[in-house]
Amino acid sequence: QVASGNGDRDPLPPGWEIKIDPQTGWPFFVDHNSRTTTWNDPRVPSEGP
């Protein structure tokens, strides 16, 4: 069983990049398509309500 969020081996969607926040050391994700950033890994399906 693979733990949720453990998709580091999967490629990011086109136009996405991983960067590290220098203050926290946490990775965040840059979507160059929409010029936005998020803490949520785009490779992990979001949980519904």
Rank of each mutant, 00 (worst) to 15 (best):
P13Y: 04
T36P: 01
L12Q: 08
P22M: 01
Q23N: 07
G7Y: 13
F28Y: 14
P22R: 12
T37H: 02
N6L: 13
G5Q: 15
R35T: 06
R43L: 02
I18D: 05
D31P: 03
S46R: 11
G7N: 15
F29E: 09
D8K: 13
I20H: 10
E47F: 10
I20T: 07
P14W: 03
N33M: 04
D31W: 00
N40R: 11
V2Q: 12
E47K: 10
I18T: 03
P49G: 11
V30F: 05
H32S: 02
P45G: 10
K19A: 07
N40A: 13
P45M: 07
V44I: 07
G5W: 05
P11G: 14
E17C: 01
P22Y: 08
W26K: 15
S34C: 02
T36L: 05
P49D: 14
R9I: 14
W16V: 05
N33T: 06
G7C: 15
A3I: 07
Q23G: 12
P11L: 10
P27F: 14
D41Q: 03
R9L: 06
P45I: 12
N33P: 06
I18F: 04
R35H: 14
H32R: 06
T24R: 06
D8H: 06
G5I: 15
T37P: 09
F28V: 10
N40L: 09
G25I: 00
D10N: 12
N6Q: 14
G5D: 15
S34F: 02
V44A: 02
T24S: 14
P45Y: 11
N40G: 07
Q1Y: 15
V2A: 11
G15L: 01
S46P: 04
D41Y: 06
P22V: 08
E47S: 11
F28C: 11
K19I: 01
T24H: 05
N33R: 04
S46H: 06
I18Y: 09
E47H: 07
D41K: 11
K19P: 03
D10S: 12
S46T: 13
I18C: 07
R35Y: 08
P13M: 01
T36Q: 06
D8N: 12
